[in-house]
Design a protein around this nucleic acid. Structure first.
Length: 592
RNA sequence: GGUUCCAUAGCUCAACUGGAUAGAGCAGCCGCCUUCUAAGCGGCAGGUUGAAGGUUCGAGUCCUUCUGGGACCGCCA
């Protein structure tokens, strides 16, 4: 793959800096803040002037002098305090456009040093229905996984089910309360349990909140759940058999839910799956001498300045509770060991709610104390909450949580309505209509989520989501679908893509945008922020829409070679849109 | 009380290791469909970047203080 225009210009300017005995690093070229003046700029003369205590404009002038006559640079200009504005030649733009068209990945490079990475996302719990709160982890995690994989890393996505804590004790004890005669509760029976689950997903969705609510103001009821949790973890056969049912039923349900979102995990492991590692791990930690007994619990202090009375500092990691049950910390640590044994990852990313930042800080500190991983191998990629218009976590009008299935149905319905309103889909068969509505709704939902900076909270406004205009998923689909239509029409007319010759302003801007793909991907990876890729894909769709409006492709009166050039440009755009949106988890229909 | 994140146009959000005139979308106003999908394109208007200081040739970005808001703070996950 040839160099991008940006890289080409950077090379020239850095060479000029080096020739002047200035740090080549400062010769870095960036996309211009003032595209009205020139597409590219270099601000390095200012930084260089500061270090060398010289006049920045003089340095800029020297750089320009060296670069004068460079065959890739059409125009240079020194502006303001010492900015160098750079305009590439038409020849450079055109040759790059053809290189991109010839590139299978439209210019996207693979990283030089691929890493083995685990992405822990999804955040689903056994027995709990999926609601809007699960959306972000799934959508962000999936796109990060795809991004890293596309960049060339060896990535494993793990759903890491919540299937081992008190919630299981809640379920078991509440089920016992409701159906005490089930064989799982008879301590004398230790095998031969029914193969059919005694509960459905709906049953669990009812039992868990019931137990949780009762336990809130009834210590005796809570104790039942805690005891059941401890017994389960101690290996009581009936409880283990129940847990297996819970997990099997939940995974079947979750696979459907995540499948609808286009989210696929490589591993469906959970907390329960690392249970066998826990006793040995605790022994090791004790042997290392980093544990302490405290109020009957086994802990690892992770902050010397911690003061429980003043509520200052970071609380210790809880390995084992007074009741004997292990906790969230313990299973997360055991999971780190499991991953070390099974995968040996260079990095592990946790795509989990920002509110759990301290939890991960604790786990990572404990892990560093144990010496299992370097601190920079573990990273919590927190995300903000989805809020309603009132700024509080999103709920239905009634105050309950909104189920994910209801949300996706809402999006699909809105898309169907919009499709009907446009009058385009009248001759489509119902199956295709349904498929289009699904893709449009899903694109709207995912893009609306992903375009927000990962770490901040954002407001979920249903009306805005279903408007499908402006900076939305459907806008992206629309651009792509128009290209598909164009390609079909071209095929019918016998026009084939040819050599790209970018001469019109809209054509050149489209090429410059296309050429930014690799940068956007690298930047998005570097920050682990999908919204950076969203911005790129949106800019691309915008650049194409302008091109489409200004540059007729197949219309009468357009020269044959211009048709072939523009068609090639359109096709290249479609390929990059498809790649970029694919990483975001957005599927494009054939027409809409 | 402690820790931490945030505050940018009427609304929702961007702004790449500090750079020029802080950008998009929505909402508002004005144009553009007998020819490639108007879920589109062009244009207008909209800002003391919460406040006050400081560092710097240069600050939305870095530092300090203040105001307002969110989240978290040992046996839940």
């Amino acid at each position: 793959m040839s160099l991008s225009i940006l890289q080409t210009l950077t090379g020239h300017v850095q060479a000029a800096f080096a020739a002047l005995d200035l740090p080549p690093k400062q010769g870095r070229v960036i996309r211009s803040d003032r595209p009205d003046l020139a597409p590219f700029q270099c601000n390095g003369a200012l930084a260089a002037a500061k270090a060398a205590k010289k006049n920045p404009r003089e340095i800029a002038a020297s750089v320009v002098e060296i670069l004068t006559g460079n065959p890739d640079i059409a125009d240079m200009e020194i502006a303001g305090p010492g900015f160098i504005n750079l305009t590439p030649t038409d020849a450079l733009i055109t040759s790059r456009a053809n290189a991109l068209a010839a590139s299978e990945r439209t210019g996207a490079e693979h990283v030089a040093q691929p890493q083995k990475i685990v992405v822990d996302y999804g955040g689903a719990n056994v027995a709990k229905p999926m609601h809007v709160g699960h959306l972000r982890s799934a959508v962000i995690g999936e796109s990060l996984k795809r991004l890293l994989r596309f960049r060339g890393h060896d990535v494993t996505g793990d759903v890491h089910l919540g299937d081992w804590g008190l919630q299981m004790g809640h379920l078991i004890s509440e089920l016992e309360h409701e159906q005490p005669d089930l064989p799982y509760f008879d301590a004398k029976i230790t095998n031969g349990y029914p193969t059919e689950s005694p509960v459905s997903m709906d049953d669990m969705a009812r039992l868990y909140p019931a137990a949780s609510a009762k336990s809130k103001d009834d210590p005796a009821r809570l104790k039942l759940s805690q005891e059941a949790t401890a017994e389960l973890q101690a290996g009581r056969a009936g409880y283990r058999a129940l847990l297996d049912h819970f997990i099997t039923v939940s995974i079947a349900y979750l696979k459907r839910g995540y499948g609808e979102l286009g989210v696929e995990f490589d591993l469906w492991k959970g907390e329960a799956s690392v249970d066998p590692l826990i006793p040995g791990m605790i022994d090791d930690l004790i042997a290392m001498g980093i544990t302490e007994e405290s109020d009957g619990a086994l802990i690892i202090p992770v902050d010397e300045t911690y003061d429980a009375d003043k509520r200052k500092g970071i609380p210790p990691v809880m390995l084992r509770a007074r009741t004997g049950a292990v906790l969230y910390h313990t299973t997360d640590l055991a999971t780190l060991i499991d991953r070390k044994n099974e995968i040996g990852p260079d990095k592990i990313y946790y795509v989990v709610d920002q509110r759990q930042a301290m939890h991960f800080d604790q786990v990572f500190r404990a892990c560093a104390k144990a010496g299992w991983y370097e601190r920079d191998q573990l990273e919590h990629l927190g995300f903000g909450t989805v809020n309603g218009k009132d700024g509080k976590p999103f709920t239905t009008r009634g105050g309950g949580t909104l189920r994910l299935a209801d949300l996706t149905e809402m999006m699909r319905d809105a898309a169907q309505e919009r499709l009907a309103a446009s009058g385009i889909g009248q001759d489509f068969d119902p199956e295709e209509l349904e498929d289009i509505a699904n893709k449009v709704g899903m694109a709207a939902l995912k893009f609306a989520d992903l375009q927000n900076q990962r770490t901040t909270n954002y407001v979920f406004d249903v009306e805005r989501f279903v408007s499908f205009e402006g900076k939305t998923g459907p806008y992206l689909l629309y651009a792509a679908v128009r290209i598909k239509s164009l390609l079909r029409r071209a095929a019918k007319q016998g026009v084939t893509p040819g050599t790209i010759n970018a001469v019109e302003d809209a054509e050149q801007k489209l090429v410059l945008t296309l050429d930014h793909f690799d940068d956007a991907l690298a930047h998005a990876e570097d920050k682990r922020m999908p919204h950076i890729l969203c911005d790129h894909v949106y800019s691309l769709a915008q650049a194409f829409s302008k091109f489409y409006a200004e540059c007729p492709v197949l219309q009468d009166g357009v020269a044959d070679e211009t048709k072939a050039s523009r068609l090639a440009l359109a096709k290249l755009t479609l390929r990059q849109l498809t790649l970029g949106m694919g990483i975001l988890g957005i599927d494009i229909p054939e027409r809409m």
